[in-house]
Design a protein around this nucleic acid. Structure first.
Length: 259
DNA sequence: ATGCCCGAGAACCTCGGA
């Protein structure tokens, strides 16, 4: 079974890539971020024709997250605990696995933060704090938990193409890494790092300055798993193939393989 | 160079992204 996360930077533009990729890779569950469309505009028919169930929460122009799944979705949530956020950045659902056990899946598009001294960074901190409390509840209620998404934080300098240039900057600051670590201390593991120790592996590359060709990227799209799910995992990898296509998203999918 | 590229929405520029 394959569970993937992909920030598509407009589902309207990227829908052909997404449909092709789902068919080619036989992915079971795909979590999308940055839909940039309202729920009325969501291409539900296109996914249902391919045999997928969908849960989504969108808005005009910005944000928006969805879960596309070959398995039925239940227990759908669209809001963080105790945080009134008009931005659509959180969606969660339960999926029954092949052995009849239940997985709690959470898909997030974390705030960018813009700069450490900005109002948007205050929002990023508050949002992460609320996510931590929400994840504490999920981890208390479920053994099998997978939290995926665009975290807009690099876990370490190994996840940055030019750590010297990015030092202390947004996505790479000590404070953000502490926020991510504090979240993971609730009982979550960076599944990519459980299988890959090498550097120069990224999930996002700047559109500007031929960022992809220069491999000038960041690893900010993560699949965090509970201990029980890490024990079931056989691999977590980044699939760069969609980034090579015409008119790509600036992010590419991260894929967790589970027994 | 608080830029470079891209998407959305209101227009042919601004905002937000990372």
């Amino acid at each position: 079974m394959k569970i993937a996360s992909w920030n598509v930077n407009s589902l309207r533009v990227r829908l052909p890539h997404v449909i092709d990729w789902l068919q080619t890779t036989q992915t079971d569950v795909l979590c999308l971020q940055e839909l940039k469309m309202t729920d009325e505009e969501f291409p539900i028919k296109e996914f249902e024709e391919q045999g997928f169930h969908c849960a989504y929460t969108g808005q005009k122009t910005y944000n928006g997250v969805a879960i596309i799944s070959r398995h039925q979705l239940s227990g759908i949530e669209k809001h963080l605990d105790n945080y009134d956020d008009p931005m659509r950045r959180y969606i969660s659902a339960e999926i029954v696995l092949s052995d009849n056990s239940t997985l709690r899946l959470i898909n997030v598009y974390c705030p960018n933060g813009q700069a450490l001294d900005s109002e948007k960074f205050v929002y990023k901190r508050e949002w992460f704090n609320s996510l931590r409390h929400t994840m504490r509840r999920h981890l208390a209620d479920n053994e099998q938990v997978v939290l995926v998404g665009d975290f807009n934080i690099t876990p370490s300098d190994l996840d940055v193409h030019d750590p010297k240039a990015w030092r202390g900057k947004i996505h790479c600051s000590d404070l953000e890494r502490l926020m991510l670590q504090t979240l993971m201390n609730e009982g979550l593991y960076d599944s990519f790092r459980a299988f890959h120790t090498e550097g120069e592996r990224f999930s996002w590359w700047d559109y500007r300055g031929a960022g992809y060709r220069a491999n000038a990227g960041l690893r900010i799209d993560l699949i965090l798993t509970s201990a029980a799910m890490l024990a079931r995992a056989t691999d977590c990898d980044i699939d760069e193939s969609p980034r090579k296509l015409e008119r790509p998203s600036d992010h590419t999918p991260v894929v967790l393989s589970v027994e």
